[in-house]
Simulated assay, not measured.
Amino acid sequence: MLSKRVKYILLGLVALLVGYILYDASEEPGIDDLKGTYKEVAMYRNENNTGPIIRIYAVTVSDTTRWDEMRQYGDLMLYTKYGNTKVYFFPADKPAPLELFRKQPNFDRKFEPYCLALYEKDAMSQVTFRRKPFGTVQ
């Protein structure tokens, strides 16, 4: 049988461990830590839960010169192993799609001239980040 002192020490260690886990979880970087203003304006996720999960996002950006941050934003988005995640970035002051589709093109072609960048993480976890994927941005 353990003495009261040992029980209190063990209880204290458990409380300390739980406190550390909570602190560590709250310190994870997130989208709110990025300096630019990002707003998700459209999202698509396929309903097929037996195959690869496909996620497509359209996001507006206030600062259109923060390429590294756009890539970080993409890295922070949900991803499922063997799935695919795409994030299209658009300037906040220009038109952006409000509806996305699974098949290419993922949105109405009239928005292509406004697309700043495309972040994609494919089924093999390979990341590609392309600036101006449809040519010159208006």
Rank of each mutant, 00 (worst) to 15 (best):
R55F: 14
Y38R: 08
L2Q: 05
A15G: 05
Y8T: 08
R5M: 06
R71E: 15
D68L: 09
N48W: 06
L22P: 00
A123K: 10
E69D: 08
Q138N: 11
K35H: 05
M43R: 13
K81Y: 04
L118V: 11
P97N: 03
T64P: 00
A96R: 06
Q138T: 11
D63F: 08
A15H: 10
D93Q: 03
K103F: 11
E28G: 02
R71C: 13
I31N: 07
Y79I: 04
R66L: 12
E112S: 12
L78S: 09
N46T: 04
P133T: 01
F134M: 07
K103S: 11
K4N: 15
L118W: 09
A117S: 15
A96Q: 04
L2G: 00
L116S: 11
P133M: 03
D33G: 07
L16F: 13
R45L: 01
D33V: 08
E69F: 05
G83S: 02
E99L: 10
Q138Y: 12
K35R: 02
M124C: 01
V18P: 03
R102M: 11
P97F: 00
Y119C: 09
V18W: 07
L10H: 00
D75S: 04
K121R: 15
Y8R: 15
K110S: 14
V59T: 14
P95S: 11
W67G: 01
M43W: 08
I54M: 03
I53C: 02
Q126K: 13
D75V: 07
S26N: 13
L76W: 00
K110L: 06
G83Q: 05
Y79A: 02
D108F: 08
T60Y: 04
A42R: 00
S125I: 06
A117M: 15
V137N: 02
T85S: 12
R102I: 05
P133R: 00
F90V: 04
Q104A: 14
L13W: 06
V59F: 04
L16A: 15
N84R: 14
Y114C: 01
R102H: 09
K86L: 11
K94E: 07
D33E: 13
R55G: 04
A92C: 02
T128H: 14
I31Y: 09
N46L: 02
T60Q: 13
L98M: 07
I21N: 09
N48M: 05
G12P: 06
Y119M: 05
R5Y: 09
P52W: 05
V6M: 10
M77F: 00
K7C: 01
T65L: 06
S125W: 10
Q104E: 15
R55Y: 15
A96I: 05
I56C: 01
L13G: 07
V87S: 09
